[in-house]
């Protein structure tokens, strides 16, 4: 059991998400940075699908009621056990009664805490991921608060030795990752030529309205070509007949919003492109006021990037010792 003493800013239980329900409005949820989530699990011997705690901007304070093996990855939140700093991207043994205390993120936005055995909260639609908007999954469908008690599953029999680490070359430098690649498309033809070009050249900054649903960015105004609006679309040039929104898609009410793991699944704003699957986790580590640049790529480049990212994760796992 893990007893939460302080929940941090926005900490939720997440796994690799739920599928098969997007058509009735249920987004995947799941870890925003699945690379950090997967390696946290690997360090403690869990399957990649095991549930971890995702912490945003500020970590939790929590006490372990039993001996456990843990790993903290993702954003650096300076974790300590009983006041002593512990390594991140590292398998760490804790004893019953030990207190884990985490601070504010100094680099990146989201950290992951994996515990050998995984967090054994009930599954909802085959996933332990928290989706707070309607209050399902995770711990009572909400962010963690003081007093919450999280059960831990059975410890895996095979796992890396305590002290095993992810080598530095596989640890992302979040501060440097300001460019995310996008495949333009869907309704990008409705943008003015200037706005379409500017989308992939302007400096965007992450606004405080950036969460698991979407990242609202600030930057130059984005303009659509004026037209006679089609029947059913609504009156604003940015409106379309309500349609499905891909996870990672960029919509532009005026400024861009990139939809993330708790995406609204559809609506009436024109979508103009999609952040590629390999780069959504990089965007998820951008902090408020950080810069973001969009780089246009074609779909085959996006597929190559996905493969490269998978190979890097495999190599990181293989290098853990």
């Amino acid at each position: 059991m893990i007893e939460i003493e302080a929940g941090g800013v926005a900490s939720t239980v997440q796994d690799d998400g739920r599928t098969g329900h997007y058509h009735i409005g249920v987004p995947p949820s799941g870890a925003m940075d699945s690379y950090a989530h997967a390696l946290a699990n690997h360090l403690v011997g869990n399957e990649e699908s095991a549930a971890t705690i995702e912490m945003t901007y500020q970590g939790i304070t929590a006490t372990f009621t039993e001996d456990a093996v843990i790993a903290v990855t993702g954003a650096n939140m300076s974790p300590t056990i009983e006041g002593e700093p512990i390594g991140t991207w590292e398998s760490v043994a804790v004893e019953a009664g030990d207190e884990l205390d985490m601070g504010f993120a100094t680099s990146g936005a989201r950290a992951y805490l994996a515990v050998a055995g995984g967090l054994d909260v009930p599954e909802v639609m085959d996933s332990r991921s928290t989706y707070t908007l309607v209050g399902i999954g995770g711990h009572e469908g909400r962010g963690l608060e003081a007093g919450d008690e999280l059960p831990v599953g059975a410890t895996p029999t095979e796992r890396p030795a305590v002290g095993a680490t992810v080598p530095d070359e596989y640890v992302p430098e979040y501060a440097d990752e300001e460019t995310v690649r996008v495949v333009l498309g869907m309704n990008d033809h409705r943008l003015t030529a200037e706005s379409r070009a500017e989308l992939c050249s302007a400096e965007w900054t992450v606004t405080p309205e950036a969460d698991r649903v979407g990242y609202r960015l600030d930057g130059p105004d984005v303009e659509f070509e004026e037209r006679d609006q089609p029947f059913g679309a609504g009156t604003d040039p940015s409106n379309v007949v309500d349609l499905g929104y891909p996870v990672g898609s960029i919509q532009v009410p005026q400024k861009p919003i990139v939809l993330m793991q708790d995406a609204v699944t559809g609506g009436g704003y024109a979508t103009v492109g999609t952040v590629i699957s390999a780069d959504r986790e990089r965007l998820a580590q951008r902090q408020t006021h950080d810069s973001v640049y969009f780089e246009e790529v074609d779909v085959d480049t996006a597929l190559d990037a996905r493969e490269t990212r998978a190979e890097r994760l495999d190599a990181a796992r293989a290098a853990v010792e």
Partner: peptide
């Protein structure tokens, strides 16, 4: 027929509702 990144396909059948 449009790509939604590398992992979605979006197909627009009409701009107006019918």
């Amino acid at each position: 027929y449009e790509y939604g990144g590398d992992d979605h396909v979006f197909v627009d059948l009409a701009e107006e509702m019918s």
